[in-house]
Computed example of a mutant assay.
Amino acid sequence: MQKLNFSTYSFRFKSNENKISIFDCIRKKFVILQPEEWVRQHCVQFLIHEKNYPKSLINVEKELIVNNLKKRYDIVVFNTDGSIHLIVECKAPNIAIKQSTFDQIARYNLVLNASYLMVTNGLNHYYCQMDFKKECYNFLRDIPSYAT
Results as ranks from 00 to 15, higher is better:
Ile65Asn: 15
Trp38Ala: 08
Asn109Pro: 04
Ile75Asp: 04
Arg107Val: 00
Arg141Gly: 11
His125Gly: 02
Pro35Gly: 03
Tyr73Trp: 11
Gln41Ala: 01
Leu110Trp: 06
Leu123Lys: 13
Arg107Tyr: 06
Leu47Cys: 08
Ala92Met: 07
Lys28Ser: 13
Phe6Cys: 02
Val88His: 04
Leu4Phe: 08
Arg107His: 12
Pro144Trp: 00
Thr80Pro: 13
Gln41Asn: 01
Lys29Gln: 12
Lys71Cys: 09
Arg12Ser: 10
Asn94Cys: 07
Val60Glu: 11
Phe139Ala: 09
Ile84Phe: 05
Asn121Trp: 10
Tyr146Glu: 01
Ser10Asn: 15
Cys25Lys: 14
Ala147Ser: 12
Ile75Glu: 03
Glu50Phe: 00
Arg141Phe: 11
Glu135Pro: 03
Pro35Glu: 02
Phe132Gln: 06
Thr8Cys: 09
Ala96Leu: 11
Pro93Glu: 11
Asn94Gly: 02
Asn52Arg: 14
Pro144Ser: 02
Lys70Ile: 08
Ser21Tyr: 15
Phe102Val: 08
Gly122Lys: 10
Lys3Phe: 05
Ile87Gln: 02
Glu37Leu: 03
Gln34Ile: 01
Ala106Cys: 08
Lys55Phe: 06
Phe102Asp: 00
Cys43His: 07
Val111Pro: 04
Glu61Arg: 11
Ser100Cys: 11
Val88Gly: 04
Asp142His: 13
Thr101Leu: 01
His125Pro: 05
Tyr146Leu: 01
Tyr126Gln: 13
Gln104His: 10
Leu123His: 06
Lys3Gly: 00
Tyr108Gly: 06
Asp81Cys: 12
Asn5Thr: 11
Lys19Asn: 14
Val31Cys: 03
Arg27Leu: 15
Asp103Val: 08
Arg12Gly: 00
Cys43Arg: 04
Asn94Met: 12
Gln45Trp: 01
Asn52Pro: 05
Cys25Met: 12
Tyr126Asp: 06
Gly82Thr: 05
Arg72Thr: 05
Lys29Ile: 00
Ser145Thr: 12
Glu17Asn: 15
Asp103Ala: 13
Val60Gly: 10
Thr120Arg: 04
Gln129Trp: 00
Asn5Glu: 14
Leu33Ala: 05
Tyr108Ala: 03
Glu63Cys: 13
Val119Met: 13
Tyr137Ser: 10
Lys28His: 10
Ile58Cys: 09
Gln2Leu: 15
Lys133Asn: 14
Lys98Leu: 07
Thr148Ile: 10
Ile143Lys: 01
Lys3Glu: 13
Asn59Pro: 00
Thr80Met: 05
Tyr137Glu: 03
Asp142Phe: 10
Val44Glu: 03
Ser56Pro: 09
Val88Ser: 06
Val44Ile: 15
Ser7Thr: 07
Ile97Phe: 09
Asp131Thr: 14
Lys71Ile: 04
Asn94Val: 12
Lys3Cys: 04
Tyr108Ile: 03
Gly122Trp: 10
Lys3Asn: 13
Tyr9Asn: 07
Ser83His: 09
Tyr9Met: 05
Glu63Gln: 15
Ser145Asn: 14
Tyr53Pro: 15
Ser100Gln: 13
Asp74Phe: 03
Glu17Pro: 00
Ile75Ala: 07
Asn94Trp: 14
Gln104Ile: 06
Cys90Trp: 04
Ala96Asp: 11
Ala147Val: 11
